[in-house]
Nucleic acid binder design. Sequence first.
DNA 1: CTCCCTATCTTTACATCGTAAAGATGAGAT
DNA 2: ATCTCATCTTTACGATGTAAAGATAGGGAG
Lengths: 243, 243
Amino acid sequence: MAKTNTKSETARSARAPRKTISAAASRPPRGAASAKTETPYHHGALREALLQAAERVLERDGLAGLTLRAVAREAGVSHAAPTHHFGDLTGLLSELAAVGFRQFNAAMAASSNAATTPLQAALARPKAYVAYAQAHPGMYGIMFRTERLDYSRPSLHEAAEASFAGLANAIGMMRQEQISGDALTLSQGAAIARAWSMVHGFTTLLLDGRLEDILGRLPEGTTAERLLEAMLMAPISGKLPGP
Amino acid sequence: MAKTNTKSETARSARAPRKTISAAASRPPRGAASAKTETPYHHGALREALLQAAERVLERDGLAGLTLRAVAREAGVSHAAPTHHFGDLTGLLSELAAVGFRQFNAAMAASSNAATTPLQAALARPKAYVAYAQAHPGMYGIMFRTERLDYSRPSLHEAAEASFAGLANAIGMMRQEQISGDALTLSQGAAIARAWSMVHGFTTLLLDGRLEDILGRLPEGTTAERLLEAMLMAPISGKLPGP
DNA sequence: CTCCCTATCTTTACATCGTAAAGATGAGAT
DNA sequence: ATCTCATCTTTACGATGTAAAGATAGGGAG
């Protein structure tokens, strides 16, 4: 961290000059700045505004640029304002991850519902999974690569749980079994772990550029999506190992 | 970052009192501190010492505690000393990741060589993969979860490449094919991506605690290793999806 | 043998970060 | 109209990465 950034911390003081010594006599009206209805000064939905600002910062500056202060700056409030709403950096990241999980789940559900053939149905969710991560790498990073998440937060726990439930359900449909919420057979657990590990592993490797090596050696113009498809179909059509 | 740490930055000054104003008249002999041959003051292998210190810090304090200054503290040198050897935090992390990859490759090779039956041979590398990550989660995190790595560094590039080559080779053996260094068929690429994604995904999910949900629902006492085995065997013995 | 060059290490400095604590602000209750 | 208190701002502190300047010797040049 601590990037040598030219962006001054006191950028805001341009429109709200710091009173160095003078007492609180005639404070410049904040209403002038909030006339654009961007962030309605004292009241309004600062919490939501901060989450949206965080998403914007994440898309613009990536994971490294997503700091508490940067988010506050983006929202046009003081750097300590987020504390009151999220308590912590962990709090903000966790709530943002929850937002991401909801988008993620919605994308997969939509893609799954649009499928018609069984083959399409089997490939729809994984493809949507990878597509979301490629479209929102920062968000995916928050959701899956960050140790600074607090899963005890209800919103995050619930959203992540929904993601898992969707996966388990899809596996159950493919196996034509009822996946119980309580207990799993080893075979069921293995099937779920397998599907999840494969797609999640593929996604992280892809986002980290670790698959470039493979993609570059494949027939000209083979996309990551094509490789994903082939990978997922392999256990069905591929040859078995051993003599 | 910026943990509220009680460890003072000036811990070293206990044995090497800071000369506040006095000129460089009689500097306390550094040889007294280096008499234990830990870090031979001015000369010696500071580079190696820093890498070992970094590994120690990583195992003790985890990824969050692995900072340039902490490593310098651990090695008993000033906080700016690492700069000259690694240039950057990225530099240090990259060299450390290279060390990790070499350990990692050695562990997998050893496990693979010890296998006797074809089934053992097929499971040896994945098991060693996960075992290494579980034994050295911090190191694995550096190697695979960090965006602050510079793969253009020869040592890191080479070590990571060796890891990939070992994987590709193992897949080639299982398929009884020769895996060319230049080109890959889609089927070959899919097999490699599949094996790597599955094991890597499983590992990251396991380290992140995301598999607890599954493990807790499995028959009493099912270990992660057992789940991994079942997962890897599934495409061979499991039932196929669809009607 | 002496002197100086240069790689190595230390000091100092600065911008940034997360977080705590205290001071202002204003909306709604009394 | 005044009070209360949630909300937001200021200020402060310790931590980090990194740049730049000062100190320290090892080793070659004279």
